[in-house]
Design a protein around this nucleic acid. Structure first.
Lengths: 239, 239
DNA sequence: CGACTCCTTGACAGCGTTCAACAGTAGTGG
DNA sequence: CCACTACTGTTGAACGCTGTCAAGGAGTCG
């Protein structure tokens, strides 16, 4: 009951998914993680599934020398931890003060053996969407320039936030940079370019993390390089 | 029977996986694809699962202007097409003349609803491994330099080929470049650097696609940038 | 209010791309 | 068998995008 209500309140676009997952497991309840704290670490046994009630989470990997790659951002209503196997392959950290619903989980897909078609479909959809997102991210990291990356990021977040008038980013430039495979300076410069081109507004009496998209069609064009034959930078090579 | 034998012959390290997958589906048999031909295209309905009997396959995505990102290479014995949903999210092409076993497939995870625990585990393992590989690839594309990328590529292929004396690459430099998010020239230069450092030999009476790894430990060190943690965050110099 | 972090901007450098030339190899047909 | 051709791969030189370093401003939180 408690779960039923809260999940439906929070995640209108993924109604009841955690319910399905939780039905045959045990909901452990709500947990709060302060800004910057670790929810689980890479290599730890994966015992739970999480849904964000309030806040935002980043999942990341690190190299030994500190270089970091963020694989995904999870926002309000999003579920994470499902796609892992026996152990977590990512580290998950709260970007801001975050409240999550936690459900005990069996091993991946275990609930599918229990004839629960609905839960099976939900898990399948989650894994499918995860794969699709990650694979598109490969293309972004491997073949797109900095402005395209930032535009793609803004486009994605804007969509996931429901295209609000003012987009409030929970994460800082450092996180954006590590998500896009860039540096903070390059992210900042790309945002300035988009601002100067009239695509968005930033600052203007707002926080630096509040962005107003002024020209979404133009942003959409920026996402993928529209091979401008004049500027032969990194993109055009058509061969 | 025919399938049983051939699968076990070919894929010792993934014994019988396609058998499991095929048991409740229908094996359609063997198909041959000439070098460079398309096995399936991005966006096409996903009707079959494939296992490579002989040859090699690349799966890739393209941007509208022709930029390409290869997501994975499939070698002899490998299964591909399982991780897709209703439609293929990648294009699959034969790198060389390739023979594949083809099995009709149901929708993703459908076989799990049929109480086939063994098949369920196989699908789960395939999806888990796919996710792990792709996520590591994110880190490579987002945060590693050219030599690290090429070293990681060689390390992976060497392992998958069973560390032979002479590594015979089925793919050309162009494919390697598009897999690593680089250009052919940069791949070639990185190989030359590794050659000059005594890590490998290439050419020497062999084809350019035949490589001898002379110092696997050193190659392993090249894979990830270790060394001074305090200096720059991106990576130390090459030379 | 002060110390801290975050963000932006500028100057510069470096790594990887682009462009170009050349050598090696494979495929083809005479 | 040898030309002829097309393709692949290597190497050099110059360019430029992005990283690095530095400085300063803006916001945050004690």
């Amino acid at each position: 009951m408690f779960i039923q209500v809260s999940v439906n309140e929070i995640a209108k676009h993924v109604p009841g998914q955690l319910n399905e997952l939780a039905r045959q497991n045990a909901i452990w309840g709500e947990f709060k993680y302060p800004r910057g704290s670790e929810i689980f670490g890479e290599g730890e046994p994966a015992k739970y599934v999480y849904q964000i009630r309030e806040g935002a989470v980043r999942t990341s990997k690190r190299l030994s020398d500190g270089r970091r790659q963020i694989g995904a951002f999870s926002l309000r209503g999003d579920i994470f931890g499902v796609e892992d196997g026996e152990v977590h392959r990512f580290t998950a950290e709260a970007i801001v003060n975050t409240t999550v619903l936690v459900a005990k989980r069996r091993s991946l897909f275990a609930e599918l053996a229990n004839d629960d078609i609905s839960a099976a479909n939900n898990v399948r959809d989650l894994v499918t969407r995860t794969l699709e997102r990650v694979e598109n991210h490969l293309l972004l990291l491997g073949r797109q320039n900095s402005v395209e990356r930032v535009a793609a990021f803004l486009f994605e977040i804007d969509r996931r936030l429901g295209q609000p008038k003012v987009m409030v980013l929970p994460m800082g430039r450092r996180d954006i940079a590590d998500y896009l495979g860039l540096t903070v300076e390059t992210v900042s410069r790309a945002l300035s370019i988009l601002r100067d081109e009239g695509v968005l507004s930033v600052g203007r009496g707002l926080t630096q993390r509040e962005i107003v998209l002024r020209d979404r069609p133009k942003l959409g064009e920026k996402r993928v390089c529209q091979s401008d034959p004049e500027r032969r930078s990194r993109c055009p090579r058509l061969s």
